[in-house]
Design a protein around this nucleic acid. Structure first.
Lengths: 202, 202
DNA sequence: GTCTATAGCAGGATAGAC
DNA sequence: GTCTATCCTGCTATAGAC
């Protein structure tokens, strides 16, 4: 038995997965609230009522997109935190893992960036706030370790630096398009360079 | 006669301006589409129909918020471009002017950040795309001048650097709250420092 | 300048036929 | 698994009284 949201092992997505992929694209492009169930149904070539054979509600759809994505991402962060790498390497790896997420799950990242605040007002999506806290802990831990071990400037405002890194990384989902222009690794290279060394010709 | 969206010289805002301020806060907080005219009317203590005595439509309200804000902001950018400062100073000034805008017009900035894409799909808001282009020209001009005059690293990817600066600056509207915590000048100080010199303890 | 009342439409969701 | 048909709600906007 396979998880409902993971493609079957033979590579053929289930109908449910197809519909979810269509919904993800629309949610990411137009926003959750601005996407109607009729939009999703139209894009899938069926009528809106038929969607409810597969999903309880529009909310269930976005829920099913976000949960497995976040499990995967935070699993990778945990791996980095648990590794024996030095602070600078850990920070670099965390940035690269994030750009990889933008590359591999652009829709899920966009939905989280654009709609987490709004969705978070519903009990059902309370876990979004938890993930937010967890994310903050990851970055702050890495920055503090960097300052402590001397690889980062001792005068850094940790909270502000955390926000700076978080925002610079995730906001890239607004313009990055997988398969077009620079690869996610190339973008990550440049971002890490600017973040660590700045743009000044020192 | 005073401009419709500027407070009267005696400091007492007109009713129209009061309503606009209420709408701005709600648009910024919940998004344009997610804010109903009833929300605005409720917050103003009147009924939704009464709003239409003051404004043609919900779109007119957001239009009246964005246009004068952008005129002011781009006027300042033009001033910087036309100044005789060196490239590094110009770039710093542009960053500082942007943080000042976040401080003084947080709602307008938030609306532009969150809803420009959606609003831009209507003819009436075609000027939003023009402003976007104009903004890009400002930053790219400054970065290119910086590279040319040797104050910025010669190996910078100009487009990527432009996106980096634009995003890092404006995304701060998501967490910066005027009058709470660091001042906008203090935040700008740190951002400029990270942007130019990085976070590494070189 | 605000209220009453309501038109007109679009949205999420449901029941049951096929 | 999809369609037909429809309910109910909430939204923008309007007309005219006060």
């Amino acid at each position: 038995m396979s998880a409902a949201s993971t493609p079957e092992s033979n590579g053929t997505p289930t109908r449910r997965e197809q519909l979810l992929a269509i919904a993800a694209e629309l949610f990411a492009e137009k926003g959750f609230r601005n996407t109607t169930v009729r939009d999703i149904a139209d894009a899938a070539g069926i009528l809106s009522g038929s969607l409810y054979h597969h999903f309880d509600s529009k909310e269930s759809m976005v829920d099913e997109l976000l949960v497995p994505f976040q499990e995967e991402l935070f699993g990778k962060y945990d791996e980095i935190l648990a590794s024996g790498d030095d602070a600078r390497t850990k920070l670099e790896r965390a940035v690269r893992v994030s750009f990889e997420a933008i590359d591999q799950h652009p829709h899920e990242v966009a939905i989280f960036q654009n709609d987490a605040d709004h969705l978070g007002t519903f009990e059902r999506f309370g876990y979004l706030a938890d993930r937010n806290t967890q994310s903050r802990q990851v970055w702050v831990t890495l920055i503090e370790e960097g300052v402590r071990t001397g690889v980062l400037r001792p005068d850094l405002d940790v909270t502000l630096t955390y926000r700076f890194i978080r925002d610079t990384v995730w906001v890239a989902v607004r313009w990055y398009r997988p398969g077009r222009g620079l690869s996610h690794t190339a973008v990550a290279d440049q971002y890490v360079r600017i973040l660590l060394d700045g743009i000044s010709n020192a």
